[in-house]
Structure formats: structure tokens, C-alpha cells
Design a protein around this nucleic acid. Structure first.
Length: 288
DNA sequence: AAACATCACAACCGCCTCCGT
DNA sequence: AACGGAGGCGGTTGTGATGTT
């Protein structure tokens, strides 16, 4: 390193490493409003101290609403093994054939699980594929069996748990499901925070805005924003359906979010009024 | 209980490809 | 046709979590 072509952007003064909740919110808010026509210009426009590539990666691998998170099903693992045999390390090609999965995720699963499994002299047949999330939380020891029975069920300590994963389910649906189950499909700190706030109303009291300080900081996110995303009554709980929510303090969580992030012009009226006005005038388009 | 080892995965890096000029 | 910029891709690394001694 240090030689060859120049970096994609001047990284001086830019953040590196894990993304904070505030950064996530800013990126999601900006893309939802404006799309991502120019990744290189996006960070500046969105007020992010990140390079464009970092934003793109974060969006594609983590924040996109159509991403399916959680453990890979037996069918998915079989598909990856077969497709890898056909395509080799063409992770993006493989990902394009597995709805909701990212190339990075597939690459990680291959490198950490499937490659070792196939390399083992005691190669486990694909029909006994592992259940990764459960593997981590409940190690399979001495008959403490964690076993996939089929694509949608998992046997954990003799308890049959259904995993509602399908090609059409998005991140937010997964989250919604998670709030009612003991499966943990994601390790996102933002998501954990949402779950915590959903569990504990008192925690919400402490996390909401103080005076006119921004709601969103490294430690604080307005729970309403996320709870609006996680619509209890909406099966396909993605960004677009959130616009239909009407029982929340602000009809359009996204407009409120923009305002909190300073991505909207000065409000003409009250906070709530502004939300109504913006929502009625300018429904954000869904990024492709 | 502490130290160390291993694992899993998000994120970074640099090269490649595509597309507009 | 040549060039440059931007996005895409695959390999690799850093770090937190978990397991083992």
C-alpha cells in the first residue's frame, strides 16, 4: 500500500471503521429522499464524513431495505455451493441469484463455513447445513442439538422454531418478526437499540429529545423513528409502506427524520405541521 | 477469573470495467 | 480511439464476540 494509484478520495478528516447510528440514519434519509446518483458526491451532500465508496458499501451491504438478514437456509447454502462450483468466486453473480443476499455476506459465509465444510474429510452433506446464528448463541455440544429440519424451521433444544425467511422479506420485516421471537437475525447496534426501546417504554422517555437539541447523536436515536419503520400491522414493512402509517406522532417518519437531520429547509410551521405539509407535497421516491 | 485462541463479519483497499466525452 | 471518472468487484484486514485452557 501507499503506492500505485491515488485513493478514491482524499481521506483526510474522514471517518473510518464502524458506522454510527447517526451516520446510518443520515445515509438512509438522504438516499430515500434523493437516491444515490453520485456516490462520490453523496457524503458531502448528506453531511457524512465518509468517502463515497464507504457509503455505497454500507448501503448495499447493510442498509438497503430489501436485504434479507439472518442465518442462511439449507437451500441457500446448497445454492451457494452449487453456484460457486459453476461461477467460482463471482460473488456478485452468485448474490444476484440469491434474492436479498449481498455479495459480501455470501463471500463471508463461504469463507467461514462452506469452504471449511467442503474441505473437511468428513464433509457434512448439505442436508445437515448449520444454522449459523444459533451456532453462535447455542453451541452444538454433546447432543445439545441445533439442527435445521427444513428451510424454515430450526430445532433448538428440542423446541421447533419457525424462521419466516423468504425471498420477499426485507430487513424491516425481519426486525418486526424478531421483536416477537427469540431468534436474533441481526447484530446491528441500531437494531438492538430499536428492540431495547420497543421493550422498555421508560428507556424511550430517556432517549427522546431534550429542548431543541438534535434527537440523533452517537448515543441517542428518537425511538419513534425506528418504531415507525417497524410497522406492527404491515407485512411488507419496508420504506414505502411507512408512508401509509397514520397513527404515529408524525404521519411521515421520513420527513420528520429529515428535519431532525437538518436535511430539510427551515420549518414553516410547527414540527407536526411541517411533517404534514412535506408529506403531502413531496412524497419521496423509493430508491431502485 | 484471567489470558489466550479462534471465529464471524463489517469494512477497507486497490484493481477492473463501464460509460460519457 | 483515447482518456478520465465513477461504480463495481473480489481479496484482505480489523475488531468484537465467543470459546478454551
Amino acid at each position: 500500500m501507499g503506492r500505485g494509484r491515488a485513493p478514491c478520495c482524499a481521506k483526510v478528516g474522514l471517518n473510518k471503521g464502524s458506522w454510527t447510528q447517526e451516520e446510518d440514519m443520515r445515509l438512509v434519509a438522504y438516499i430515500h429522499k434523493h437516491g444515490h446518483g453520485n456516490w462520490r458526491a453523496l457524503p458531502k451532500l448528506a453531511g457524512l464524513l465518509r468517502c463515497g465508496k464507504s457509503c455505497r458499501l454500507r448501503w448495499i451491504n447493510y442498509l438497503r431495505p430489501d436485504i434479507k438478514r439472518g442465518n442462511f437456509t439449507k437451500e441457500e447454502e446448497e445454492a451457494i455451493i452449487k453456484l460457486h462450483g459453476l461461477l467460482g468466486n463471482k460473488w456478485s453473480k452468485i448474490a444476484s441469484l440469491l434474492p436479498g443476499r449481498t455479495d459480501n455476506e455470501i463471500k463471508n459465509v463461504w469463507n467461514t463455513h462452506l469452504k471449511k465444510r467442503l474441505a473437511s474429510p468428513f464433509t457434512i452433506s448439505s442436508s445437515s447445513a448449520s444454522c449459523h446464528e444459533q451456532d453462535r448463541s447455542k453451541p452444538d455440544k454433546e447432543g445439545d442439538c441445533t439442527e435445521i429440519l427444513n428451510s424454515n424451521t430450526c430445532l433448538v433444544d428440542d423446541e421447533l422454531i419457525e424462521i419466516p425467511i423468504d425471498a420477499n422479506m426485507d430487513l424491516w420485516s425481519m426486525l418486526e418478526y424478531d421483536s416477537h421471537s427469540n431468534i436474533t437475525p441481526s447484530s446491528s447496534s441500531s437494531i438492538e437499540l430499536v428492540k431495547e426501546m420497543n421493550r422498555d417504554p421508560l428507556a424511550q422517555e430517556e432517549l427522546v429529545t431534550r429542548d431543541h437539541q438534535p434527537l440523533i447523536s452517537d448515543e441517542v436515536i428518537d425511538p419513534n423513528i425506528w418504531s415507525m419503520m417497524i410497522n406492527e400491522d404491515d407485512d411488507a414493512c419496508s420504506f414505502a409502506p411507512a408512508l401509509e402509517i397514520s397513527n404515529y406522532p408524525c404521519d411521515n417518519w421520513f420527513v420528520c427524520l429529515e428535519e431532525e437531520l437538518g436535511l430539510r429547509p427551515e420549518p414553516a410551521g410547527s414540527y407536526h405541521e411541517q411533517c404534514h405539509v412535506a408529506f403531502n407535497q413531496d412524497p419521496p421516491h423509493h430508491p431502485s
